[in-house]
């Protein structure tokens, strides 16, 4: 049994700064650098939600997701963007990650912290004067390593059942 990390002001500040740095890299399209912030046992899941009654135990579907990646598939996505044929993001979308309501708690392992945050992701493409907005709550596990943190786990619960953007090509 490991002792969970004690959450100090420093931990909160470090986790917050990590999220802001990550957002900056993603919005700047620096995916290769973003990969350096990701643990090799990454689990990155966007659950599939359906409209259900309030009394339902959950509105999250079992067995299927909108996205379910590990390190290899994330690397594949980055490698793909580095080919000359990733039309979905070439020309790239302009995106902005707004990260708020950051809540830091002890993780399950001694070297991990559990970080919840709210995400508003704004996206435009081409010269069309319209935009897509995705809103959701992120449940992250950040693991402390020499020189900082690595993203070990992320669950992004989107606030939509019918998703209002044409693909999830952007990392949330």
């Amino acid at each position: 049994m490991t002792t969970a990390t004690e959450i100090t002001d420093t931990t909160v500040r470090e986790a917050t700064e990590w999220l802001f740095t990550e957002a900056e890299l993603l919005d700047a399209g620096k995916y290769r650098e973003w990969l350096d912030l990701v643990a090799e046992d990454l689990s990155y899941v966007v659950p599939l939600r359906v409209t259900r009654e309030r009394e339902a135990e959950t509105d999250i579907v079992e067995g299927l997701t909108l996205m379910d990646d590990d390190w290899d598939s994330m690397e594949m996505r980055v490698l793909r963007l580095e080919t000359e044929y990733a039309w979905a993001e070439d020309p790239p979308s302009r995106s902005r990650h707004f990260v708020t309501n950051i809540r830091v708690a002890a993780g399950e392992a001694e070297d991990e912290v559990a970080v919840k945050s709210n995400l508003l992701l704004y996206r435009t493409r081409g010269d069309v004067a319209t935009f897509d907005i995705l809103s959701g709550e992120r449940h992250d596990v950040l693991r402390r390593v020499a020189g900082g943190y690595r993203l070990a786990k992320r669950v992004v619960v989107l606030d939509q059942t019918t998703v209002m953007t044409h693909n999830l090509a952007l990392i949330m």
């Binding site: 599939l48 359906v50 067995g63 909108l66 019918t162 998703v163 953007t165 044409h166």
Partner: peptide
């Protein structure tokens, strides 16, 4: 069918 269908909107 596993789970439920993914649903999303495309301007096409």
């Amino acid at each position: 069918v596993v789970g439920a269908p993914q649903r999303w909107v495309v301007d096409a």
